[in-house]
Design a protein around this nucleic acid. Sequence first.
RNA 1: AGGCGCGUAGCUCAGCUUGGUUAGAGCGCUACCUUGACACGGUAGAGGUCAGCGGUUCGAGUCCGCUCGCGCCUACCA
Length: 890
Amino acid sequence: MSSEHLLPPRFDPKSFEERWYERWERSGAFTPEVPSSKPPFVILIPPPNVTGKLHIGHALQFTLQDLVIRWRRMQGHNALWLPGTDHAGIATQVMVERELAKEGTSRHALGRERFLERMWAWKEKYKDNISRQARALGASCDWTRERFTLDPILSRAVRHAFVTLYEEGLIYRAHRLINWCPRCLTALSDLEVVHKDLDGGMWDFAYPVDGGGEIVVSTTRPETMLGDTAVAVHPDDERYRHLIGRRVVHPLLPRSFPIVGDAVLVDPAFGTGAVKVTPAHDPEDFATGERHGLEKINILTEDGHINENGGLFAGLERMAARKAVLQALQEQGLRRGERTHRHAVGHCQRCDTVVEPYLSRQWFVRARPLAQPALEAVRSGEVRLIPDFWAATYYNWLENILDWCISRQLWWGHRIPAFYCDAGHTTVSMDDVTACATCGAPVRQDEDVLDTWFSSALWPLSTLGWPDDTPDMRAFYPTSLLITGFDILFFWVARMIMMGCHFTGKAPFAEVHLTGLVRDARGQKMSKTKGNVMDPLELVEQFGADAVRFTLAALASPGRDLPLDPRRMEGYRSFATKLWNAARFVQMNLTGDEKELHELKPGKLALPERWILAVFEETIAAANQAWGTYRFDEGCRRLYQFVWNDFCDWYVEMAKPLLAGAGDGSPLEGADAGERRCRRDVRSVARGVLLEALALLHPVMPSITEEIAGHLGGREPLITASYPAATGRFQDAAAVQAVATMQAVVEEVRSYRHLVGLPPGTPLGLYLRELDGGLLADLTAMSRELGRLAGISRLEVGAEVVPAGSVRTVAGGVALAIELPDGALKGAERQRMAKELEQVVVELQRARARLADLGFRERAPADVVHAAGQRAADLERKEGLLRETLEARV
RNA sequence: AGGCGCGUAGCUCAGCUUGGUUAGAGCGCUACCUUGACACGGUAGAGGUCAGCGGUUCGAGUCCGCUCGCGCCUACCA
């Protein structure tokens, strides 16, 4: 091995992360074959919004998606991870409008065309940002298939879907109450309204009844009384029944309206039992208006001011109007009461303005017919939600779904392909038309664009070239897995399933993994105002992409939020360093004659080699199992434990004398104990296990594993290597048992040395007793290792007699006596031992009581009873030996 | 108003599906150690009435019921 290939002493991720990414991408490893004989595995990225840079939640999702796709790729799947971005209509438009406002201009001043130029420039900048960040994280996306929701091919798919749904009667245009943002000046869907519980006022006022008397109503929105067209009471309410059919006189406007009986709207027990009805400004009142044929009077302008229907109040902003109306009612002596009232107020998801239920002509998707197949897809198991408790939420939403308002009064998005003539005909068409399909008159296109989520809903189709029967559609639809946040289960996931099922008869993916939210170290939601936002790129800069990835994956317990503590990330950077150093140590002792693992015959190896191979095989099985069930936390935990504890702490320590230096390093050197391990086998196993472990780790930590494997002379880049699979070839229960026993003995000796206050290096004598044949042979074979790890200068395995005054105890089922140098226990240590004895006695009592329980012996399974018996026997022995030690020295 | 999730070591979390040795991990903490890669290290250790109450069971952190606390989602309460 020439020195230029030696791993540098210092682990510096910056020195190789970018280099590896470029090599992978250039090699074409990210791009699948089409067609291919390999089974496909497909992940479509949840396209980030081109609103800005990626946040830590994206980093989490990118990490998990990349982990799975790399794993599947290595397993031999034709793996596609298709990247892209979303134009994010309203969200992006709001950002650019803010920028324009700073420049003292506005989109209206610019005009539609120039505004869209600005939008596209913005998009280019942020799209590039996003792909740079994805690359920095090591995301193995197929960039040759990168998509953007406003690309021509995707736009065509969107238009096709719209036209088809229109022709099927599943898209329609209607004049009805929708959610309106008076700041964004657009309609919103129900999902885009965020409800916040706020303390507001509740005011009572009286409507004079025509012909005498009054009727008192309560409201949280006094200003809407300008649009009232009825007062409703419960038809069975004795207090008001006689008033039904009479009219009330509007106190502030020159009109009157009826008192109606309505059992649906009115709860006689609430408030005064009489309700003002404003059909144009409240969904319930709208429905009431429909039932009673009431007039719907809109009193608001699009930007939230009172319009000409508000008489003297015209021109006032909503809140000002509220005050003015209350004042006017006060002056007329009609105010009857006021109290605070907590209730949900709808806010615009993007700009936080209070939304208005607003009467408007909009386009809608008829949701129920689309929801049915989507429900069935999950119920039948065609789509699996992970964790599965999300299914209940999913069902609940789809079972109660209302029609979806899809038109937006924005400029940034897919323009609605509807054309209107003056005669009022509508032409919906795949192609831009100039003449009405009905009457031939000139037409103009609808000014509005589609809800971003309408195009997102088509993402699995549009990215693969639908509606054409493309090679990509054939090769990759339906896709395999979607990894996304639970917060867009309704916005996106449900709607993709609806559209996929409707247009292809197949749900767009087989599995959906819903991640939690990344929070700060104290579990607080990250937000700019709190100042606790963590930037993924800064973290990569500080810790390296692999450590960031490992941390996020290790924290990703199913269905839980992730409290991200930078100290945790430091810990996993240490893990990367540990791996690096272990590899350096192994590498510096290689001679170049090492065999590959598959060339080794497990039966011919010594116990430490057999053991690490067996434990590694268990780890391989565990990792594959973990990735397959999306237990990223579990997989990372197992890999961490294997590398650090099993490989570094035990195997390398057991291998050290044979890897390095001339002697075997044991204090027992020269003694006639222990078997000779073949140095070449040790080197081969150390190198082979390390290389395979790197492959095993590669999906989580792609760069460092490639870098190390490259230096160790791995035959091919890990990205295209085979993922380790457990074959059972190295399974070895006997070796696992033997080394576990040895470890227990070593730990016991170390513990006592420490207990007695001797320096770590102090050599001790050790006598192992009461061993059966197999264990006796195994521990004899490993006596050099045992001696070195425990710091033993004199070792007798299977000793009949032990020196007087030695400490006697039990570890791993082996009775052992430790000979202390000064031959005497001091007071403090005697106390500790006495305390240990007490504990043993208590445990023994418990164990015996359990065994004495007839119910337990009769009903518990035999192996459980047997194990309990074993345990009692061990405790008994330990008790005896401890007493022996203590009493012998009195 | 419904629905869901959570409450386990100082902190953040596994374990609960399929009940059974001594309830685990990381970080933090204590003591000792610069032992042939690694002080971003090694060794040893302290620390838990598994939110509370009740039930099922030979046996409950794990299953069932109730209570308390925290978080989230859906919803038309004037």
